[in-house]
């Protein structure tokens, strides 16, 4: 079980709990605004972009090469950017705070 907190572009804070699957799927199932997950989680659409809180980067890890390639063309991306379809929900990410990019 992991608690994941999303901060939307309207500064709304929503905390969800999940046990498996991707963070994107959890967000979409719970209607988090700004996370669409159009491609279902295969890293082709970049509609699940989040900024991980700097102190949580150790828990989520940084973006993979393919993610970075997707993100490098997004003007809004920085070193804390992740596509959350590529973050699996495990106990290891309990407590992370993610700021929705869109």
């Amino acid at each position: 079980m992991a608690k994941i907190t999303f901060i939307t572009s309207d500064e709304e804070t929503i905390t969800l709990e999940g046990t498996s699957g991707s963070v994107m799927a959890l967000a979409v199932d719970n209607g988090i605004p700004g996370i669409d997950g159009d491609c279902g989680g295969v890293c082709s659409c970049a509609t699940c972009h989040v900024h991980v809180a700097p102190e949580d980067m150790e828990k989520t890890g940084s973006a993979s090469e393919i993610e970075t390639d997707m993100l490098e063309l997004d003007d809004n991306a920085d070193e804390y950017s992740r596509l959350c379809c590529q973050i699996d929900i495990t106990d290891a990410i309990d407590g992370v705070v993610l700021k929705v990019a869109k």
Partner: peptide
């Protein structure tokens, strides 16, 4: 079940 699939079948970027 290709897991990572950054295809451009729907185009890419602004005009996707």
């Amino acid at each position: 079940d290709r897991k990572i699939n950054p295809h451009v079948g729907f185009g890419f970027s602004h005009h996707n």
